[in-house]
């Protein structure tokens, strides 16, 4: 029992369950899932579907944060990805064919990879602090997206493209399947290879990792590229869902949601140990929170207030200082960590 209480996923999962139950109280059909035309429908499915872009971006963000970094540019990258793919489809001679849709997707994915390479370059080669390096793209990115769309909202009508965000496969929304696949790939990539451990090693102690012969540069580069890729796919989902590219508003504040999901999932912003499952739960909590606010009849924009409160509470729970204050410890925290130097 004690081990269960201490497990870092216990509290996030509990919070998610409580949120879902709260919704059930207000709407008795909340937890029910029904089948209609062979497709699954229901609030739970909606949460998963609407949360898919956040889940994707949060996956990439988890690895970046584990490596002691942060990627503020994901929202801008998502906007750029949507912009390039929609513009490509819009301008192609056959805007409704599957081939065109595939071309658009490919271009967006390449764009995401290139932007990830750029961020990784600034962080790992030039050695700029991650928050600042990615701030550059965060600032310029939406301008680039507008440059691509020429400041217009580009609407496309391509059934294949639309399927990414709104389609169904085997009764499940395709966006959920994509997010699940990405989750699986990330899990395999990090745990079947040594990538996960090495990311953690670099995140916990970069100096010691270098002296152990680790090439931090390639690892850090990899996580930013992965983050760019995730952001691009999320951008495709977002634009496909509304069948348009909106350079200004697509993925706005999604970097905040993603960071929040990672933090709620128990991964420390200081880097090191991470949990992809935790991030998944975190992203679902955020999406459920949004839904809850809606269910309770509060204006949806006010969700931001709740998110802010959640961030503060979670950070306080993670802060060792806060825990120490709670325990009323007399000694300064510095003392314990300095023991080896001191004695």
């Amino acid at each position: 029992m004690n081990a269960l209480l201490k497990h870092r996923l216990t509290w996030p999962v509990l919070a998610l369950v409580l949120l879902l139950l709260l919704n059930q109280l207000f709407r008795s059909d909340f937890l029910s899932v029904r089948v209609q035309d062979g497709h699954l429908y229901g609030s739970l499915i909606d949460i998963l579907r609407n949360g898919a872009p956040t889940i994707l971006i949060a996956l990439g963000m988890t690895l970046v944060i584990a490596s002691r970094g942060i990627d503020l540019s994901v929202g801008a990258v998502a906007a750029i990805a949507g912009a390039v793919s929609c513009t490509y489809i819009y301008n192609s001679p056959d805007p409704s064919s599957l081939r065109t849709a595939a071309g658009g997707v490919a271009i967006a994915v390449v764009a995401g990879l290139v932007l990830g390479l750029w961020n990784g370059f600034l962080v790992s080669v030039i050695g700029i602090q991650p928050i600042i390096a990615t701030l550059v793209l965060m600032t310029a990115g939406r301008g680039l997206a507008q440059l691509v769309t020429d400041g217009q909202i580009i609407s496309v009508s391509n059934d294949s493209y639309q399927a990414i965000g709104a389609g169904f496969f085997l009764g499940l929304p395709i966006s959920i399947l994509i997010a699940a696949a990405a989750f699986g790939v990330a899990g395999l990539l990090t745990r079947r290879t040594a990538l996960g451990t090495l990311i953690e090693a670099v995140g916990i102690n970069p100096v010691a990792s270098r002296l152990a012969g680790l090439s931090a540069r390639s690892i850090i580069w990899t996580v930013y590229v992965f983050s760019g890729l995730c952001a691009a796919i999320a951008g495709l989902m977002i634009s496909s869902n509304v069948t348009a590219a909106d350079a200004n508003n697509a993925g706005l504040y999604i970097e905040m949601d993603a960071i929040l999901a990672v933090v709620i999932g128990g991964t420390s912003l200081a880097g090191g140990r991470y949990s992809l499952v935790g991030t998944l739960v975190g992203a679902l909590i955020i999406q459920t929170l949004t839904t809850t606010v809606y269910t309770l009849g509060i204006p949806p924009e006010v969700t931001l207030v709740f998110k802010a409160l959640v961030v503060i509470i979670v950070c306080l729970l993670q802060s060792s200082k806060a825990r120490d204050l709670l325990r009323q410890r007399r000694r300064p925290v510095a003392k314990q960590s300095d023991v080896k130097v001191a004695v």
């Binding site: 040594a194 451990t197 090495l198 953690e200 090693a201 916990i204 102690n205 100096v207 010691a208 990792s209 002296l211 152990a212 012969g213 680790l214 090439s215 090191g272 140990r273 080896k340 130097v341």
Partner: peptide, 22 residues
């Protein structure tokens, strides 16, 4: 040790194989 050797939050096993893995 602390600054340049240990990966404090990883297990003994992970620390042991780190150089080999790297």
């Amino acid at each position: 040790r602390k600054e340049e050797g240990l990966i404090g939050d990883l297990s003994v096993r992970d620390n042991l194989v780190l150089a080999m893995q790297a």
